[in-house]
Write a protein that binds this DNA or RNA. Structure first.
Length: 318
DNA sequence: CTCGATCCCTGGACGC
DNA sequence: TGCGTCCAGGGATCGA
C-alpha cells in the first residue's frame, strides 16, 4: 500500500543502497506498466544514479548527465563563451502502485515471481522491480517532459502552508476525502492516511471541501502532517506485503486508529467504526466523532458488486 | 467541475 | 483439495 510514508521509506533505503551506482544494463520482461519501454532500454545503460528522491507517491531516480566525449572545437572563436552543455534533468520515475517493490539483490538470488525489470549495477548487484498486479508505473523522462509530468501534481502535504492548504481545499465542492486523495491537489496521500487524518481531525470523509471551517482545515493539515511524519519514522504501514528496500516491513499499521477497524470500537468514544464508500474508496470513520454532514446522501453503505473480467495478456504500452 | 461506474491486475480470504 | 467469488485500491477514462 505504498503511500507517501512508504515511498519515502523505500526512497531513503535506495538512496543509501544504490545512489552513485552506474547502471550497466537493463532487462525488461512484462512492460505494460512502462510508458515507453524502448526509451528505458536506450537511455539507462551506462548512466549513473545520482540520487533517489520521493515526489508524491513517485520515486525519482535522478540520472547523471551522459558523459560525452567532448568534440574539439574546430575553430576557436576568441570571443565565444565557453561551450556549456545544456543541463537537461533526467530521471526514471517509479510508481509502486499497490504491490510494487524496487530493491537491490545479489545476482545469485533467485528471481522473485513477477520480476519485470532488472537493472544490473556496476558493483555486481541487480536493482529489481517486481509488481504482481502491475498497478505501478515506470517512465524515463527528461527536460521539458519531466517538468510537465511533475507539474501535474499538487503540493507536498509535509511542506504545505496553512494558506496554501486552505486555498486548495476550501473552494471545492468535492468531498474532503476525494480532495485528500486527488494527487493534483496534494501529492502522496492515499486511502490509509486520508482516513487516519480525518478521524484525528474529527471530520467526516463525505463533508464538502468548501463547508470546512478554517479551524477544521488547519486541524486537518496539522494532523495529516503529524501522521505522515510519524509513519515515516516507523517506516510506513505494512498492511499487505509492503517492505522497504531492505525487505523490512514497516510498523505504522500498529498505530492505525480507524483504517481497517470497521465494526470495532472508536478509540476515542467507543462508538462502532463504520465503513462507507466515498469517492469510490472504502472510508473508515467514527459516526459519533465525525458527524455526518447535512443531507441524506452522505451515508451510502458499501455496495457489493459483482463484475466479470477477461483480458488477454498485454505486453506493450499503456 | 464533480460524480459514479468500469477497467486494469493478482493474491489472499472465504464459502461450499 | 479445489474451485468460484469477492475484495483490496491508485489511477485512467468515460458518460452523466
Amino acid at each position: 500500500m505504498p503511500e507517501l510514508p512508504e515511498v519515502e521509506t523505500v526512497a531513503r533505503g535506495l538512496q543509501a543502497a544504490v545512489a552513485g551506482r552506474r547502471i550497466l544494463s537493463v532487462t525488461l520482461r512484462k512492460t505494460d506498466f512502462i510508458d515507453d519501454p524502448a526509451a528505458i532500454e536506450r537511455e539507462l545503460p551506462g548512466r549513473h544514479i545520482v540520487r533517489i528522491e520521493r515526489f508524491g507517491k513517485f520515486m525519482l531516480l535522478r540520472l547523471a548527465e551522459r558523459v560525452s566525449v567532448p568534440a574539439p572545437a574546430p575553430v576557436a572563436v576568441e570571443s565565444a563563451p565557453a561551450r556549456v552543455p545544456a543541463r537537461v534533468s533526467e530521471a526514471l520515475l517509479v510508481h509502486l502502485g499497490m504491490t510494487g517493490h524496487l530493491a537491490p539483490h545479489l545476482p545469485e538470488q533467485p528471481l522473485a515471481k513477477h520480476t519485470h525489470v532488472t537493472f544490473t549495477l556496476d558493483d555486481g548487484r541487480e536493482l529489481r522491480y517486481t509488481d504482481a498486479r502491475r498497478f505501478g508505473r515506470m517512465a524515463y523522462l527528461a527536460g521539458p517532459a519531466l517538468n510537465a509530468e511533475l507539474e501535474r501534481f499538487g503540493a507536498d502535504p509535509l511542506h504545505i502552508s496553512a494558506q496554501e492548504f486552505a486555498r486548495r481545499m476550501h473552494p471545492s465542492k468535492a468531498r474532503i476525502k476525494a480532495l485528500l486523495l486527488d494527487q493534483r491537489v496534494l501529492r502522496g496521500v492515499g486511502n490509509i492516511y486520508a482516513d487516519e487524518s480525518l478521524w484525528t481531525a474529527k471530520i467526516h470523509p463525505a463533508k464538502i471541501g468548501r463547508r470546512l471551517t478554517a479551524t477544521e482545515l488547519e486541524a486537518l493539515r496539522k494532523e495529516l502532517r503529524k501522521i505522515l511524519l510519524k509513519a515515516i519514522e516507523l517506516r510506513g504501514s505494512s498492511i499487505s506485503d509492503f517492505v522497504d528496500a531492505g525487505g523490512v516491513p514497516g510498523d505504522y499499521q500498529q498505530h492505525h486508529k480507524v483504517y481497517g477497524r470497521a465494526g470495532q470500537a472508536c478509540l476515542r468514544c467507543g462508538a462502532k467504526i463504520k465503513r462507507i464508500l466515498v469517492a469510490g474508496r472504502s472510508s473508515h470513520f467514527c459516526p459519533n466523532c465525525q458527524p455526518a454532514p447535512r443531507g441524506p446522501h452522505h451515508l451510502r453503505p458499501r455496495r457489493s458488486k459483482k463484475t466479470k473480467r477477461n483480458r488477454p495478456n498485454a505486453t506493450s504500452k499503456r
